[in-house]
Simulated scan of single mutants.
Amino acid sequence: MRELVIPIENAGDPDATEMIRVWLGNGSCSISLLLGMYEDAEDCEIDELEVWGNILSDIAQHIAHGFKQSHDWDEVKTMAKLRHHFNQAIKEHAPGLEGHYIKEH
């Protein structure tokens, strides 16, 4: 099993929180999400769907930036391709996703 390291910017931060983990294995994609973090906080007026939209955007930007650094790909073109494939996948696959929501104990 191959796990990624915790980003150095978050190492040692006792308040750092893992929000998403993605695994490819056994012929499928499995995802663990920390849902409800803001909803569960007292006196919090944050729209959690806006936060997840920002997280998805950050992921795409990190992918584009990473490919720029590792393969010298154009970030604007990479973002355009990611956006295209993201929108296509949403149209083709939603609804109908299988999986289970499991509350932590």
Rank of each mutant, 00 (worst) to 15 (best):
R2Y: 13
R2V: 08
L4F: 13
V5H: 12
V5D: 09
V5E: 10
V5T: 11
I6G: 00
I6N: 03
I6Q: 06
P7I: 01
E9Q: 10
N10H: 15
N10K: 13
N10L: 14
A11Q: 15
A11G: 08
G12H: 07
D13E: 07
D13K: 11
D13F: 07
D15M: 12
T17C: 09
E18F: 07
I20V: 14
I20E: 01
I20D: 00
V22E: 00
L24Y: 13
L24C: 09
L24Q: 08
G25F: 02
G27M: 04
S28T: 05
S28L: 11
S28P: 00
S30E: 11
S30C: 08
S32G: 10
S32N: 11
S32M: 12
S32L: 14
L33K: 01
L33R: 02
L33F: 14
L33W: 09
L34P: 00
L34A: 09
L35S: 06
M37S: 11
Y38L: 07
D40P: 02
D40H: 13
A41G: 02
A41E: 12
E42P: 12
E42A: 15
D43H: 13
C44K: 02
C44Q: 04
E45Q: 14
I46V: 15
I46W: 06
D47L: 09
E48N: 04
E48Y: 03
E48L: 03
E48G: 01
V51P: 01
V51M: 06
I55R: 03
I55Y: 12
D58F: 13
D58M: 09
A60N: 07
A60K: 07
A60C: 13
Q61S: 04
Q61I: 06
H62K: 11
H62M: 09
H62T: 04
A64I: 00
A64H: 01
H65A: 06
G66K: 07
F67N: 01
F67E: 06
Q69A: 11
D72T: 06
D72W: 15
W73H: 10
D74R: 01
V76G: 08
V76M: 11
T78G: 04
T78K: 03
T78L: 10
M79A: 05
M79Q: 03
M79W: 02
A80D: 12
A80W: 10
K81L: 15
K81A: 14
L82N: 01
F86Y: 15
N87G: 11
K91C: 08
H93T: 03
H93F: 14
P95V: 00
P95G: 04
P95S: 08
L97R: 11
E98I: 09
E98K: 14
E98G: 13
G99T: 05
H100N: 08
Y101R: 04
Y101P: 00
K103T: 02
K103R: 12
K103L: 07
K103S: 05
